[in-house]
Design a protein around this nucleic acid. Structure first.
Lengths: 355, 355
DNA sequence: CTGAAAGCGCTTACAG
DNA sequence: CTGAAAGCGCTTACAG
């Protein structure tokens, strides 16, 4: 008969094997070896008061000798806290989200949270997080967010929910980006360089509103290509951009603002087609600030948009507050994050574009 | 007195409140509503045989209506399984990893696993996953992997460990990429187009070996720029690339192979500086296949490298096997994934580069 | 200071 | 096909 590994521990403690065949030490084993009840072991291990110093030390010594690892499943079954945050990353969200989440995790880890990300279908992600005791879920929006399944899943979730890029809601905390102001900033900067004939290429309504406002405020020039509306999945709308690029210099705008870095790449391709160059032929500002863009493009693009640092810390500030205060008395927060203009190489004074 | 939310469900099921004050549904609730024992509910929910179809359907309907989410801690306490996979994503891993993990999660979800990703420090990530009862961890390597902390953490982890991009190991399952063969494929393709003077720009030793082999096998031309070694963090090594680009056409290679898409962007920038164009002045093959590159670059680049689909399914195949077989009798697997050449627009017959 | 007992939500023999 | 009971490892009132 094979000897039980237990005998190594010089006592007749219970046997307890992991599926992998490894022996697993529990508080009962420790209790038996220490000659106390497992209640006392639990207290000693958790630093609860009411255990004699001598007893505690003895227990601690045995625990460490046996390489005791607490079974978190058991602990979790009793007290449901995990201090962890789940981030929902919908498919096809691209580089910006990667940087935001990376930044979020760095900041959250410093604050003692553990962070996990779920890719793919947001509804499934919520379920996964619930299963794994995540107590805060942070959502980056996607079209899925308005589906009944998603709504049902988020309602079933009992923890804290925070939604990026969302208008205020009675159901969860929200963070929005001041896109309007971002585009106004961009126009301001261009106007400061003397530009009077500026085009906006994009489709987001907030950004368009910002563009309209700034145009009026600064009394910029009206021209047929002032606004080129390029809705998603409407490739043909880019023909208008092409038309604009083909016009003689005197009829073209001197500066362009694009909606996103995706749009920027499309624009750059078109420019190449028509042998136009940036910033030699146009000044350009792109919304979205993705750090490695500089690595990828051969020009350093002036950008405007929220910084990932600000977005991440805005979200975490809300969570900190909640952690401290009594959740019940804190309503659902809403924070609007400002944008930042980062001037790089693609914005030049209008005099550079003189005929 | 406030009405308990329970009353909505038309039964006097037990009350069970989360610390946040919200109600949590358990199998007991479902049992009471269905008028069966919770043992039966457990069986029905887990697809065990021995439950009448009608009963099962009733239970399933109630469960979904109540938004039941199984308590993993409880389940885990009994059978130490969670059918979930944690992916370790070290900082600064870039686009390729994003696509790989996205693909992995799509395939894993189909097979009934739930997948979570941890960003940042790999050691902390292992701990996070342990805390959350992940039973399989998949690691994308980083320099951290050889640190004592990481090794200790992965040894403490009781589940299945799989390491991408690694040579065989007695401690975990491994998947490697046949980089040597990848570069050989690239050279073969170029040679097939008649190229005899090819440069490799990069630093990975396997890839360099592949290049050397192919060069010998095909008896390609020796020339001073055959291999331009550009180690990471050695910006000055790119001067040699610049030197090569400045040479007169007769002295330059006709085709280039780069190590990674990062290197490709550097090359493209340099080409622009010297008014050289791809593929007009050079054929080009880049290692790494990142789908949105086509969107970003203005040229469709011919690439070689493992497809994310293959890498993901290779990893999952190992996990499937383990799930089915008896873990004890299955050793640690090693799989080598082949590469794929995707011919796009940057490889042309050598005659196009005739003087 | 210490311990017996109840219970967290679930699975799994086992008995009907 | 269904259910009563034991038990996974732990924490937490509660009683001594």
């Amino acid at each position: 008969m094979a000897m039980s590994p237990i005998l190594l521990y010089n006592g007749s403690i219970e046997q307890n094997f992991h599926e992998s065949g490894e022996y697993v030490v529990t508080i009962k084993d420790i209790a038996q070896m220490a000659g106390v009840s497992f209640t006392t072991v639990s207290k000693a291990l958790n630093g609860e008061p009411g255990v004699r110093e001598e007893t505690r030390n003895k227990i601690l010594a045995i625990a460490s000798k046996l390489n005791y690892v607490p079974n978190l499943a058991a602990r979790r079954l009793v007290d449901r806290k995990s201090d962890s945050i789940g981030l929902i990353w919908p498919n096809k969200s691209g580089l910006f989200l990667y940087h935001l989440f990376e930044q979020f995790q760095i900041q959250a880890e410093k604050a003692g949270y553990s962070v996990m990300v779920a890719l793919g279908n947001p509804t499934a992600s919520v379920r996964t997080f619930m299963k794994h005791f995540v107590d805060t879920i942070v959502v980056w929006p996607s079209s899925e967010n308005t589906s009944p399944e998603f709504i049902q899943a988020r309602e079933a979730f009992q923890g804290t929910l925070l939604m990026f890029n969302s208008s205020p809601s009675p159901y969860y905390h929200t963070i929005s980006i001041d896109r309007q102001e971002a585009i106004q900033q961009a126009v301001d900067h261009l106007a400061g360089l003397g530009h009077r004939k500026i085009s906006f290429i994009g489709y987001n309504s907030e950004k368009i509103t910002g563009f309209d406002r700034a145009t009026q405020l600064l009394e910029l020039e009206e021209h047929p290509d002032r606004l080129i509306f390029t809705p998603k999945n409407a490739a043909e709308s880019w023909n208008r951009v092409a038309d604009m690029l083909r016009k003689p210099k005197s009829q073209r705008p001197t500066a362009l603002i694009v909606d996103s870095y995706i749009a920027m790449f499309k624009l750059l391709k078109l420019c190449k087609t028509y042998s136009l160059r940036i910033p030699e032929d146009f000044s350009l500002i792109a919304y979205d600030d993705v750090p490695e863009l500089e690595e990828i493009t051969d020009i350093a693009v002036t950008t405007v948009g929220p910084s990932v640092e600000h977005l991440a810390s805005a979200a975490l500030d809300i969570l900190f507050e909640l952690r401290q205060g009594h959740p019940a008395e804190v309503g659902h927060r809403h924070v609007k994050v400002a944008s930042q203009l980062t001037v790089r190489g693609t914005t030049r004074p209008v005099s550079d574009y003189a005929l």
